[in-house]
């Protein structure tokens, strides 16, 4: 059988997550043309099917099972593997999200597959897949060979672009409800609250992140950071000093004990750049630092630096961004 690749599709409110589209791009590269790219989703609404058609998915396995709606991610493993067996895929690709991460470990253990998460490069070799991924908070990269017949990958957000082409609607096959142990179905999700990262994109997903630190001085002043983020269409982040002080919830925290982000553009406002923070953002593509202290360590990792009073620089920058984007 020609090896194919299966994408596990994450949907939120009937929309396919951007990370799943990126995963489809990776699957397309890895799949033998004969094997093709297949996908599995718990939601096979027409909009989902159409979106997947646009990124080259030839076949969609629908895992519409009411029991799974509020069950742990773990409960999906049996269904996903059933799809993998049906499609003949030797590789499962997931987006670089909480959903993808949690499912990847399950799938690998269950499928007896090699696993790699946060992958930024991947290609086939004679003996299996070779992947590259950042480690140590982006301070280094490792290359690994995934030996054996099967592999599970999650990809780093923004490391791959979603394919685009003439949309061909995939065929849809509905899978039988998989057997899931009662223990795994026992926990329940009882509510979903709005993400506490404001109105913009979520931190892990965003292509641009604007973070504020101690230099912002008061919780009220933090709106300067948020206004700049809004102008850029960015997610808002914060250093540990800010979340420790309670100016913003811990869900905003970027760093060793918070979120690791790797956006296209990271703007650090009033952040000195403690190692704690740096490991969470150093693998961003372009880093801008605005700080009053020219010797702040953040300037060592930044691509562009502005030394000055953030209370003057940031409003001016917000205005300039708005002007530039309006044109």
């Amino acid at each position: 059988m020609s090896p194919g690749a299966l994408v596990v599709v994450e949907t939120h409110g009937g929309r396919v997550a951007a990370s799943s589209l990126e995963a489809a791009g990776v699957a397309a590269r890895l799949a033998d043309p004969a094997g093709g790219v297949t996908a599995v989703a718990t939601d096979a609404a027409p909009e989902v099917v159409a979106t997947l058609g646009g990124v080259g998915v030839a076949k969609l396995f629908s895992l519409a099972d009411a029991r799974l709606a509020a069950a742990p991610v773990a409960a999906l493993a049996a269904g996903v593997l059933a799809a993998a067996e049906r499609s003949g895929a030797d590789t499962i690709v997931l987006g670089g999200t909480a959903f993808g991460r949690d499912l990847a470990g399950r799938l690998a253990a269950r499928w007896n597959a090699a696993v790699a998460t946060g992958v930024t490069e991947v290609h086939r070799t004679a003996s299996g897949l070779e992947v590259k991924r950042p480690v140590f908070g982006g301070r280094a990269t490792e290359t690994r060979r995934l030996d054996g017949p099967r592999a599970v990958l999650t990809i780093r957000p923004h490391a791959f672009t979603a394919p685009s082409g003439a949309p061909t609607p995939p065929t849809v096959e509905t899978l039988a409800s998989p057997e899931v142990p009662a223990a795994v179905l026992a926990p329940r999700r009882v509510a979903v609250e709005a993400t506490a990262t404001g109105t913009g994109p979520s931190l892990g997903d965003a292509a641009i992140v604007v973070s504020g630190g101690r230099g912002v001085r008061t919780p009220e002043n933090f709106r300067l950071v948020e206004e700049l983020a809004a102008a850029l269409g960015a997610a808002v982040g914060a250093s540990r000093a800010v979340t420790d002080a309670g100016w913003r919830p811990t869900s905003f925290q970027v760093g060793q004990t918070g979120k690791s982000v790797s956006p296209q553009l990271y703007v650090a406002v009033g952040i000195s750049g403690a190692i704690q923070h740096l490991v969470g953002m150093v693998s961003s593509r372009t880093i801008v630092a605005i700080n009053s202290d020219a010797s702040a360590p953040i300037f060592k990792v930044a691509d562009y630096g502005i030394v000055g009073d953030l209370f003057q620089i940031v409003p001016a920058l917000t205005a300039e961004v708005r002007r530039a984007r309006a044109h």
Binding site: A98, T117, V135, A186, S260
Partner: peptide, 25 residues
């Protein structure tokens, strides 16, 4: 903090036959 794979807990949950949850606060 070194390889940052984040697959250990989910794999362990599967091997023990119990549910697992990541990203918990």
């Amino acid at each position: 903090g070194d390889r940052e794979s984040g697959v250990f807990a989910a794999a362990l949950g599967e091997l023990l036959g119990v549910p697992d949850f990541g990203f918990v606060t």
